[in-house]
């Protein structure tokens, strides 16, 4: 069966969709975490400390996410490569009926997001890009996430880069969330327009959620 999952296009799409679902859920949880910025330093720092200290939870989650990301990227690249082999002679005129920009650029938006994730990890999680961040601790010795974010997003280059990356991510998701229902076969005839509209709405919601923090910092609402 595993053989068939990997060898068939449908199986690979299935892997894409399952890992994509996992990653989307993570993105959602991440956003919920970020939004706690608006509840004040104690709340978000307590949340961060809870995550940091639950090693039994943290590492399996990190491990799982890494595997999901790798499988998602692996199937994405393989499928795109396969799809490129299907039409040697291209059309001279091409009206791209229906195929949205998001659907046609999944590999590029996906690659950008992957690279940004690496940068993002180096920046916040590992802390090798901005050495100041690693020094910010709360009195009880945990990371002061609240201050870290304010500090980082006060730098307009960081904020802009972040906003751009979230834009690309949500653009990627605007197609991905809708498509995963198709690949997983969760659909009833007549419901597609609704599914796609909700998917785009969800992507937009994620975008607003993520972008609200740097924007609030830049506007001085969060200090």
């Amino acid at each position: 069966m595993l053989d068939r999952v990997w060898k068939s296009t449908l199986g690979k799409k299935f892997l894409m969709a399952v890992t994509g679902t996992g990653l989307v859920l993570f993105v959602f949880v991440h956003m919920m975490g970020n939004l706690q910025m608006f509840l004040g330093p104690e709340v978000i720092n307590r949340y961060a400390a809870m995550l940091q200290t639950s090693i039994e939870f943290l590492w399996p989650a990190r491990f799982g996410l890494a595997i999901f990301a790798l499988v998602h990227i692996g199937t994405g690249i393989t499928l795109t490569w396969q799809n490129r082999q299907t039409r040697d002679q291209r059309y001279a005129t091409r009206k791209l009926v229906k195929a949205t920009l998001a659907s046609r650029t999944m590999l590029w938006t996906g690659s950008f997001v992957a690279l940004y994730v690496v940068y993002h990890l180096l920046h916040f999680t590992i802390g090798t890009i901005d050495l100041h961040l690693a020094e910010m601790k709360t009195p009880d010795g945990h990371r002061d996430v609240y201050r870290m974010l304010i500090w980082a997003f006060q730098d307009s280059r960081v904020a802009c880069g972040y906003i751009l990356a979230m834009g690309v991510l949500c653009f990627h998701l605007s197609h991905g969330i809708g498509a995963l229902f198709q690949s997983l076969g969760i659909k009833k005839p007549g419901y597609e327009p609704l599914i796609y509209r909700l998917a785009r709405l969800a992507a937009l919601g994620l975008l607003v959620g993520f972008v609200s923090v740097p924007v609030a910092v830049q506007l001085g609402w969060l200090q």
């Binding site: 296009t9 396969q82 799809n83 082999q85 299907t86 229906k98 195929a99 046609r104 197609h175």
Partner: peptide, 18 residues
Amino acid sequence: MVDQMDKEGFGACTVTLS
């Protein structure tokens, strides 16, 4: 049918619905 479809060299679905 899916196996044969793959063998014939058709691409995968990107759900563009074109």
